[in-house]
């Protein structure tokens, strides 16, 4: 597993305590899991994603991510309606390992309340939180 100092924690996304990230884009928010989360899980073999059109509140479970011997629930960083899901993950769940912030994104949401993004952590705050977990 990676040392904390080796983690890739880009500054253009915000983070949750459950290790999801959210990146505001024009009218939507893209969501995935952090480098730390994918590293802890190991080789990801399956990602279960919601249906387009479903709506969830912030903190609600929207799917699961599986490695060979573990399952993790995925929680909404912000509430809203699902606009898109990353269908490439069906064939290539390993994208989450290879490119957690780009090709390995999971869902795109139309946020109900964009202000919810302000409750999330910056990369610096997230890094501190991870150090605390160690």
């Amino acid at each position: 597993m990676k040392e904390i100092s080796d983690l890739n924690l880009p500054e253009d996304v915000c983070y949750t305590e459950d290790h999801e990230w959210a990146r505001p884009e024009d009218d939507s928010v893209r969501i995935g899991i952090s480098d730390y989360a994918q590293d802890q899980l190991g080789d990801i073999v399956f990602v279960e994603l919601p249906e387009i059109g479903d709506t969830y509140e912030a903190g609600e479970e929207f799917g699961t991510v599986e490695s060979v011997k573990a399952v993790s629930e995925l929680y909404m960083p912000v509430g809203g309606e699902i606009l898109a899901v990353n269908l490439d993950l069906e064939e290539s769940p390993g994208l989450v390992n290879e490119s957690p912030y780009n090709d390995g994104w999971m869902i795109e949401v139309k946020p109900g309340d964009p202000a919810e993004l302000d409750d999330l952590m910056t990369s610096d705050a997230y890094l501190e939180a991870l150090k605390g977990e160690e």
Binding site: V45, S67, V68, K69, A70, V71
Partner: peptide, 12 residues
């Protein structure tokens, strides 16, 4: 596909 099973997913 053992993640379906009780020893991993327990109550789910």
């Amino acid at each position: 596909l053992a993640t379906r099973e009780q020893h991993i997913r327990r109550e789910k």
